[in-house]
Design a protein around this nucleic acid. Sequence first.
DNA 1: CTGCGACTTGAAGCGCGGTTCAAGTCAAGT
DNA 2: ACTTGACTTGAACCGCGCTTCAAGTCGCAG
Lengths: 132, 132
Amino acid sequence: MDETLLDIGEVARRAGLAPSALRFYERKGLITADGRNGLRRSYLPETLDRLALVTCARDAGFTLAEIAAFLQAGPSDAVLRERMAAKEREVDERIAQLTRLRDSLRHAAVCDHDPFVECPDFKQAIRRVSVP
Amino acid sequence: MDETLLDIGEVARRAGLAPSALRFYERKGLITADGRNGLRRSYLPETLDRLALVTCARDAGFTLAEIAAFLQAGPSDAVLRERMAAKEREVDERIAQLTRLRDSLRHAAVCDHDPFVECPDFKQAIRRVSVP
DNA sequence: CTGCGACTTGAAGCGCGGTTCAAGTCAAGT
DNA sequence: ACTTGACTTGAACCGCGCTTCAAGTCGCAG
């Protein structure tokens, strides 16, 4: 068997995922198995990079379908560039929203109102989270 | 009927939610109906503030169960304060992660590699998203 | 050769956050 | 009095992101 291929168990362990998740990702078109050792899937080491990308994007709130679309984009794909730019704007907006939320939480930690839910500053801050 | 109470349809519209979502939130203990007009739920105007808080926290990635726990916390609740502080740290971490992701996307928009997935800078940036 | 154990499959199940459905009820308008 | 239309209920269903299950298959150690 090819020395460069990694067993699914190895890949799963190093990517911090369950083997079942890898199979699931394969069905979704996110990764491909590059070989078999008996029935067992084996993967090129590059797959680890790809999985890092997948988990990162997933953690950032992308759906697996979105990620698959990104990964399947053709070379020099202008559409892909545009999608990435759009995603960048999306992520930016999300960062801004989370920042406002964090500021609200920060205030709540300091404020004396009881129940704090009634604190006018907190309420106003919350209102600003979604509608800056 | 009490002039200060708002019909569920009104509340749903103003909160940007479906009436079914309000009933769902009620089952989850996130809100309470303050009256009925026939069978129809009606709510105190404060419910709008509460719903703003709920949708904001939900958008920020809190589960409804977490939000319910927050809302049901007793007065002057030290545990609540600690939970909010913990959540603040969580949100902070998430902001940092998203910021790194955005930086990766930003680079991708500029970089010439084809397929960009192979761009070493991009790959390294991705690696840094989860493991700063 | 015989286990062992980690994988294989497809199908079913789960938790979340709701929506949708069917059948019914009510308030208000004409 | 009758219609209209927005709500009511419980229960079923949905998409997402997986995990779990049952039954089977393989590589490797002893």
